[in-house]
Amino acid sequence: MSLDSVLWAQTEDYTNWSNWDGSYFFPQQASDNAAAVDGTFDLIFWVSVFFFVLIVVPMVVFIVKYRRRPGYSPKPAQDHNLVLELGWSVIPTLILVLFFVKGVWGYMDMRTPPDEASEYEIQAQASQFSWKFTYPNGTVSPKLVLPINTPVRFRLQSSDVIHSFFIPAFRLKHDVVPGRFGTAWVNPTRVGTYRLYCAEFCGDGHSLMRRDVEVVDKTWEEVMDEIKWKYEEHDAWGNGQHLYILNCAGCHSVDGSTKTGPSFLDAWGTQRETYSGSVLFDENYARESILDPNAKVRTPFPRPSAMPTFQGKLTEDEINYLIEFLKDPAR
């Protein structure tokens, strides 16, 4: 399995047309706010259809009936009519007030989390071009898995530019603005796998910032236990890949492309240029760079380095796993 498919996994049952089980206009309703949104949409839709017909039908009738032709001379007609003008100002106004109120009502429901939602809060960290989720028990994972029928709150944070947290099946969207928290909540009501998109343009990989959201029929405890990465179940390289995805993939590619930092592809064991001279990319340099990114900054990347130190954030074991991964990232 290549790394790209880990990062940008496609799931069959969502992308396959034959499995589309949403309505004509909408994907599946998978949260308890979805029905309200769809209802408002449908109301506006049919009212719009009515008014659109009210435009197009007279238009067609008029161009046929009043077209210039031999023997036709137009009857005199008014060129203004106050009652008519007020009519087509006031009636739409009333309808718009209805839409407005319904919209505000639905919106307030979407914005105000129920009290239960504060029990479970997931921190969603967006960065170019990945998502990282911190679960209530401290587990960090690139996957978003939610138990059904349990309200959950999201605390949204960005580590670089503006992203937007968009899950169509939940009818949920909230911008992730750097330098501040965003708050969203959802109560998933349907088991399945859905899409999470970034909806605010954030750079080259914007369209690749889509992930799966799984809603499962389990309790929070089961979910969190399942999602917790167990080092003993994987080999060192696999553990390293997991850590890479969580901590490094935002800035360092493994396919040779240059992001904020240099790519790891075919880097191991070669001489690399830094501001402090040429350095062999080996275990010592890797370890030093993880713990003190500013020690030897690679050219031509900006100095001081944008990379935060991982001193105290990674255990000795974890650093070793990472180094194992760096030796052959494209395995």
Partner: peptide, 8 residues
């Protein structure tokens, strides 16, 4: 409420 921005 948010921690000071740490991005590049």
């Amino acid at each position: 409420a948010a921690p000071s921005f740490e991005g590049a």
